[in-house]
């Protein structure tokens, strides 16, 4: 099923104002409704290598799997959707690739990356994330953070030590508790949500969420929702205008129309006569 008619995807990535190179990596497969964003870490260019490996492995492998399987199909044995299994397996594969490269190549020792992946199918989105790259949603003027960071700050907020407001002033912003490629195995947090026409989804690296307040991000999506491309540029520009201390990456997905899973053969035949 081709989703490029139902989804409008826009993205932008920038090294920011301080860093010399961009360790973020973004990729999308519009017809499959797949978007991937990774924020790499590790010395020299190892961060770029890790994030690049994550996006490459996930897009190439998932593209192929999505050609062969329908993501909404439920496996009769496990009762789970094919999408879940695909994401789990391919994230594990990406983790292994990065981990092994880090183990075998001295210059890559210790590299890793955050990850946020969104897969759209059957009027739904399945989101997998590791670390502090985020997914937000704009629905009917209401802007909210969908994913919850795997970070020290988030743990402190959950433990009641800090309020969200205080967290903005913390010096421990840069510590994630989970990352891809650091350990031999990692489990991504995966959830599924319903989508509605008009929704706008935002995937971003912490270069955006640390530099621009949620309020201003929401305002931008609200004001420029009609033109996702411009909105993506504007968000990156705002992060840079505020100092741009880190690489900034954004992917916007606007739901243009419903995209229920095809009724298989019947739909194909109807399509023929049209």
């Amino acid at each position: 099923m081709d989703l490029s008619q139902a989804l409008e995807i826009a993205s932008h990535t920038d090294p920011g104002m301080v860093r010399s190179h961009n360790e973020d990596s973004i990729a999308s497969v519009p017809d499959k409704g797949l978007v991937v964003l990774a924020d790499g870490m590790g010395g020299y260019n190892a961060g770029e290598v890790a994030s690049g490996m994550a996006t490459t492995v996930l897009t190439t492998e998932l593209r192929q799997l999505l050609d062969e399987h329908e993501p909404h199909e439920v496996d009769p044995q496990s009762g789970q959707k094919a999408a879940l299994k695909m994401l789990q397996q391919q994230i594990a594969k990406a983790n292994t690739s990065i981990y092994q490269a880090a183990q075998s190549q001295p210059q890559y020792a210790g590299m890793g990356t955050t990850l946020v992946v969104a897969l759209f199918y059957d009027n739904k989105v399945m989101v997998a994330h590791i670390g502090d790259s985020r997914l937000y949603r704009m629905r009917g003027g209401e802007f909210s953070q969908v994913s919850k960071d795997h970070s020290l700050l988030q743990e402190q907020i959950d433990a009641g030590m800090l309020t969200k407001e205080q967290a903005k002033h913390s010096s421990n912003k840069n510590l994630v508790t989970k990352a891809l490629g650091i350990d031999p195995a990692v489990e991504a947090e995966i959830h599924e949500y319903d989508t509605r026409p008009g929704d706008i989804y935002l995937l971003c690296s912490d270069g955006l969420s640390d530099m621009v307040s949620d309020e201003d991000i929401g305002m931008t999506l609200d004001a420029l929702g009609a033109n996702p491309n411009l909105a993506a540029q504007q968000l990156v520009q705002m992060a840079n205008d505020n100092g741009g201390r880190d690489n900034v990456s954004v992917i916007l997905i606007k739901i243009l129309q419903e995209y229920p899973a095809g009724q298989g053969l019947a739909k194909k035949i109807f399509g023929w006569f049209r």
Binding site: D39, M41, D132, M161, N174, T177, K178, I182, D246
Partner: peptide, 17 residues
């Protein structure tokens, strides 16, 4: 600047503060 880069805090080493 290096200090600000994102780093992984390994959960095994975390202690309930």
């Amino acid at each position: 600047a290096d200090f600000e880069k994102t780093m992984v805090l390994r959960p095994g080493a975390m202690r309930k503060p």
